[in-house]
Design a protein around this nucleic acid. Structure first.
Lengths: 118, 118
DNA sequence: ACCGTATTACGATGCCTATCGTACGAGTTG
DNA sequence: CAACTCGTACGATAGGCATCGTAATACGGT
């Protein structure tokens, strides 16, 4: 039989559930400079931002890849809203699983940015 | 009976200086399950432990490799003491550079270990 | 001086990752 | 519908990483 295309639209994105988020995967996701920068920007104001809002030194393909790594690690949540795809931090899940972790990473990144000359 | 501490032999191990420690490198170092476990054991009691004290599911060669990654990221300090090489967390440096970060990682790892059934 | 223990260094290997280009799909707007 | 925008999927690739085995090094005790 043909595959049922109606059950799984190409537009819904698989996220790990709360209990499936692994610390090692989160650490790995944050260890890339570009991804860390994305997370830092998402943390400002806690707003949801579209992918195109970010000005990253890589192509669109690579940007998509980095957002996917963050999503599959459980760091961000991605949903389609019309033509744009909005990205938001999964702060609630992360704070529940790893209390204080995200804030300390963000603080450490901010500190280091200052230390290394913005 | 040559326990001369001032001898600068080929056994000197290069450590990054305080100001050279980078958050991304620390995150990457901690993102490997084996290395995270090493750090967790080192954190217990803050003791210095020899490499051979650890019972890891890899060979000696690979163990050496992981310890080197941790040292070069600035997470641990390694010094020779006779025939053994002792390993200790660089807690002072890490706490100064990234306040609260190490503790939150350790707490998150402990929490996850419990959550996943030790 | 030799032997045993602890650890490293080197070379090889296969997997993982970050990167790109191009072609395509889903919406919005003319 | 057609064009345009935003983002995805797929394939390719170069470099990095975790892993191993073996040979070598350093130290302490016999």
């Amino acid at each position: 039989m043909t595959t049922d295309a109606s059950t799984r639209s190409s537009r819904d994105l698989p996220h790990p559930r709360h209990a499936e988020i692994r610390l090692e995967a989160v650490l790995h996701a944050l260890s890339d400079p570009i991804r860390l920068q994305i997370v830092r920007e998402l943390a400002v104001g806690g707003a949801e931002l579209s992918c195109s809002h970010f000005d990253l030194p890589v192509t669109k393909s690579t940007t998509t890849y980095h957002f996917r790594v963050l999503r599959e690690a459980g760091v961000i949540r991605q949903i389609y809203r019309g033509t744009a795809k909005m990205n938001g931090l999964r702060r609630d899940d992360l704070d529940d699983l790893f209390p204080g972790f995200l804030d300390s990473v963000l603080a450490a990144a901010a500190r280091q940015a200052v230390r290394l000359g913005e």
